[in-house]
Design a binder for these strands. Structure first.
Length: 463
RNA sequence: UCCCGGAUAGCUCAAUGGUAGAGCACGCGGCUGUUAACCGCGGGGUUCAAGGUUCGAGUCCUUGUCCGGGAGCCA
């Protein structure tokens, strides 16, 4: 259908233009005096456009009592509005009712709804101001991610969703199988006979594309992946999903410092893009959801991230005049309360913590010369906590194999990953950015379930 | 998974152990330019489930289910 979006009609079309609009009715304000006002939204922007329906329209009686949520196609002339609150409105010449919404049953009313309630009608919640804005921001953030990497010479690669690596150290995995769960094949020892399964081996949904991305980076130089990621953790928090989208750049010849530089430039690009291209939606979030989001993003774009080592962070935390639920100590991981103290009280901006103890980080992170720390890097932001986790990778064959064995992993099971260190091995580094946490940070939405259209969490796979 | 809190009309919420209410939504009526329109009237309830205490339970107790907040795991 050839139609004008509400976005274009409201922002750039000149009065006088004949146009066709299509969308969903938010409200109808009928006047017995002979005409009605429809607030029409088509999802292209936050704003509704006001449609003036004259009583002379042949189907006026039906239009005057159109229920919220009904869909219509409107043909008419864009005119300067006589009323306050909008630059233009549409004087309708024809309004076709496409689909009625049962007013008694349609759950989205023009009133406040709780996020919890809207989650139970996830298929319809995009018709609210809040969720329409979140889905548009999510799209803009995704676009900005591609834009940043494409402009900087990265190759967009695709790593597998189904993987046989069963212990990458990044959490519990979902099993992928075509076996009949009610009639499982057994081998001679009574164990599961995976030879009968689709891939003739145990397979899982990926928890990270990193290992594969490393091999591609060591061929193409600069690569990134951007796709769904799965964690079968029994996590019940406003920051965790069982299925989420992750961006993972990987760059050959980059060290930890390059990696931090990349992460900082990358995040700033995303935030700048959203500030420049999603003004109306961002003003909505700033007004209705969190009145600090715009100032926070502007502040981040204009300043440098704080960088410090894990050891320096521990010094700050142990000297702080504060009683901790988990007292900080070198060798222990940073707790949520520690991260929040650093980002929200000490520095009041994003913080990049590097060089963590090797004992609390996975085998693939590069061991430092002191032998005690690895070239790890976490980017922490206020409220959300860890938004990026990354590292320089271990490129030395002997060190990698030793670290794998220390982690009770058999290098033979990772033969292709280890192989990379045999043929022209180079220093390289990368990180993972959680898309949903980024959208949360940008919009101020409190719960991660409200920044992905159909959230997957323990005991929830509806829709 | 652990700790804390919650579940009452379609939605958001009230209700000292003593007749279950309001706003919004919905229906009807009124209103000649409205802006989450406004004014009047009306219908609407297995108080999450199952037990228990009590003359009497939305309210107190037990168990379960679900939801939220915090923590852990992490992006």
């Amino acid at each position: 259908m050839n139609r004008t979006t509400v976005q274009d009609a409201v922002t750039k079309c000149p009065p006088g233009e004949e146009l066709t609009l299509a969308g969903w009715v938010r409200t109808v304000r009928a006047s017995k005096g002979g005409f009605s006002f429809l607030a029409l939204n088509d999802g292209s922007c936050l704003a509704n456009i006001q449609i003036v329906a004259d009583g002379k329209l042949s189907n006026y009686d039906a239009i005057a009592k159109l229920p919220t949520g009904s869909s219509v196609v409107v043909r008419g002339q864009l005119v300067a509005s006589q009323g306050k609150g909008q630059r233009v409105e549409v004087q309708a010449g024809q309004i076709d009712i496409v689909g009625l919404a049962d007013a008694e049953k349609f759950p989205i009313q023009q009133k406040h709804h709780s996020m919890e309630f809207l989650r139970t009608v996830a298929h319809l919640r995009g018709r609210t101001n809040t969720f329409g804005a979140v889905w548009r921001i999510r799209s803009a953030v995704s676009w900005a991610i591609h834009e940043f990497f494409q402009k900087n010479g990265f190759v967009y690669t695709h790593t597998p969703i189904i993987t046989a690596s069963d212990c990458e150290g990044a959490g519990e995995l979902f099993r992928v199988s075509t076996l009949d769960l009610l009639n499982l094949p057994r081998d001679e020892k009574g164990g599961l006979d995976f030879d009968k399964d689709f891939f003739a081996r145990a397979t899982y949904l990926t928890v990270s594309g990193q290992l594969e991305a490393e091999t591609l980076a060591c061929a193409l130089g600069k690569v990134y992946t951007f796709g769904p990621t799965f964690r079968a953790e029994n996590s019940n928090t406003p920051r965790h999903l069982a299925e989420f989208w992750m961006v993972e750049p990987e760059v050959a010849f980059n060290d930890l410092r390059d990696n931090a530089d990349l992460a900082e430039a990358f995040l700033k690009h995303i935030f700048r893009h959203v500030l420049e291209h999603c003004r109306a939606d961002m003003e909505f979030f700033n007004e209705r959801i969190d009145n600090t989001v715009i100032a926070t993003l502007e502040g981040i774009v204009a300043s440098d991230f704080e960088r410090l080592t894990y050891t320096q962070a521990m010094e700050i935390l142990t000297k702080a005049d504060k009683t901790w639920e988990f007292p900080p100590a070198w060798g222990r991981d940073l707790q949520t309360e520690h991260e929040r103290f650093l980002t929200e009280q000490t520095f009041k901006k994003p913080v990049i913590v590097t060089d963590y103890p090797s004992t609390i980080k996975p085998f693939y992170m590069r061991l430092s010369d002191d032998g005690k720390t690895v070239a790890a890097m976490d980017v922490l932001v206020p409220k959300i906590g860890e938004i990026i986790g990354g590292s320089q990778r271990e490129e030395r064959l002997d060190v990698l194999e030793r670290r794998m064995r220390q982690s009770n992993l058999d290098p033979a099971n990772y033969w292709w990953y280890v192989d990379l260190r045999r043929y022209g091995s180079v220093p390289h580094a990368g990180f993972g950015l959680g898309l949903e946490r980024t959208v949360q940070f940008v919009t101020g939405m409190a719960n991660i379930r409200d920044v992905i259209p159909f959230p997957r969490t323990p005991r929830l796979a509806e829709f």
